[in-house]
C-alpha cells in the first residue's frame, strides 16, 4: 500500500464516556467528508466505538488518532487507538469471538476487525496496546480481497 498525500491527523483524548461520543462524532464527520457511503460510515463509527471503548475500559484511557488517507486511487480513513495500559497477554485469545475480560460481549476486537479493511494490533504486556484500523471508500479494496 502506498500512502501519500495525507491530510492532517486529529488526536482526541479517551478518558470518559463523553469522549467516546466525541470520537464517534468525529469519525462520522470525517467518513462523510471522505465520501464513505452510509453503510460504510456506520461500520466505521461502530468500529471506532468498539475500539475506543476498549482503550477506555481495558487500557485505562488513552487517545485516538483519526487520519484521512489518499492512496491515489481511493480515499480512506485510518483510526489508531493507543493506551499505556496492561497490554494484551494472549492476542490470539483476545481476537476470538466471545472472549471477554471486561464484562462485554467479547466482540470488541474481533467484531471491529470485520468492519474495516485493514486491522493491526500492537501490544506488549505492561507497555500498552495500539490498535490500527483502516477502511477505504467504495468496495474496491474489499471485493478484491474477498471477505476476510
Amino acid at each position: 500500500m502506498h500512502i501519500s498525500g495525507q491530510a492532517s491527523a486529529t488526536s482526541l483524548p479517551i478518558g470518559s464516556d463523553a469522549d467516546l461520543a466525541w470520537v464517534r462524532q468525529h469519525v462520522r464527520q470525517c467518513a462523510a467528508q471522505l465520501g464513505f457511503g452510509l453503510v460504510q460510515q456506520t461500520k466505521l463509527v461502530t468500529a471506532a466505538s468498539e475500539l475506543a471503548r476498549n482503550t477506555l475500559v481495558h487500557g485505562g484511557g488513552g487517545h485516538a488518532e483519526i487520519t484521512p488517507l489518499d492512496n491515489g486511487l481511493t480515499r480512506g480513513l485510518r483510526m489508531r487507538f493507543a493506551d499505556q495500559g496492561p497490554g494484551i497477554r494472549d492476542l490470539e485469545l483476545a481476537m476470538t469471538d466471545g472472549y471477554t475480560s471486561g464484562g462485554g460481549l467479547g466482540l470488541g476486537l474481533s467484531g471491529a476487525k470485520r468492519l474495516v479493511h485493514e486491522f493491526r494490533v500492537d501490544t506488549e504486556p505492561g507497555r500498552g496496546t495500539t490498535v490500527t484500523a483502516v477502511a477505504w471508500v467504495a468496495q474496491v479494496p474489499a471485493s478484491r480481497k474477498g471477505l476476510q
Binding site: H2, S4, G5, D70, N71, G72, L73
Partner: peptide
C-alpha cells in the same frame, strides 16, 4: 518511487 506513485497513478487514470 513512493513519492510520485500517487501522481503517476492519477496520470495513468
Amino acid at each position: 518511487f513512493g513519492t510520485v506513485r500517487e501522481q503517476l497513478g492519477r496520470m495513468a487514470a
